[in-house]
Nucleic acid binder design. Structure first.
Lengths: 133, 133
DNA sequence: TGTACAAATGTTATGATATTACATTCAGAT
DNA sequence: ATCTGAATGTAATATCATAACATTTGTACA
């Protein structure tokens, strides 16, 4: 994870859009929300997202092709982050678990696997939505 | 996970294509490999894949938009499966870990989260490819 | 047998996500 | 001033997935 430099204009706009949202956003939704700010093409969003992910300020949710602002951007070193994603309301909880990290770490060491990125995502209904259902 | 009935023609063809492959395949790659068998459209593949996933015979790798045949289709009950995906050679290792399962289970119980599907995918270089690099 | 129903299939079109390629602009270093 | 690398702008295209609707197939059972 690279250190955070000053953000560029596009990076700031994308991060602000994600911070303002109450859940994950797709790249194209971000694009639409930034058209008034001058955004015209998907690449402007994808390029900013790539940098923001490098800085640890944004996470990509692989299982739903969407992006969220990191809820604790100051706590670095937590390489292995898990997400609980509500399929009803879109709410995302971000959490770490040392035991999970240790077990997966053991697996990769045992198998001489060199991990680059680990995805842990639980999709389902959050407490509030599960009640309503 | 639904029980496995007799597979239909398309389901059999798709499963055979995945079994024959030495790594995960995208839906469109499967389509191309089955054109000689009469496949014409993506939906034929996606529909078969959906059923095969219901039967526990195929897994979707969320982080790479691809599909693999389950390596141990007889061992059901292993709801929480983890994957180690080599980004160089495409090799996929499928494994379970009771401790990981227990820890994530604890989290969802604590948070009253009702999980529907859990994704655990580690992308990186497998032992063989890491050496070569 | 036939007929009714559910599941599977075929086909076209379209929607949604992501990247390639190339030109231009901007900011900092010398 | 000019060089350079990063960032940006833009068009086109590649890749992944589903909607909508027509048709066929399998099967239960009157």
């Amino acid at each position: 994870m690279n250190p955070r430099p000053e953000l560029t204009k596009n990076q700031s706009l994308v991060l602000r859009a994600l911070d303002a949202a109450d859940g994950p956003l797709s790249a194209y939704t971000i694009l639409d929300r930034l058209r008034e700010e001058g955004f015209r093409a998907p690449l402007q969003v994808y390029r900013a997202l790539e940098k923001l992910q490098d800085f640890g300020l944004v996470h990509r949710l692989e299982s739903i092709n969407a992006f969220v602002a990191c809820c604790q951007p100051h706590e670095h070193g937590h390489e292995m982050i898990a997400f609980a994603i509500c399929e009803k309301c879109g709410k995302v909880d971000e959490f770490c678990d040392a035991a999970v990290q240790e077990r997966l770490g053991t697996w990769v060491r045992t198998h001489r696997f060199k991990p680059a990125k680990t995805t842990i995502e639980i999709r389902g209904d959050c407490a509030a939505c599960a009640e309503t259902a």
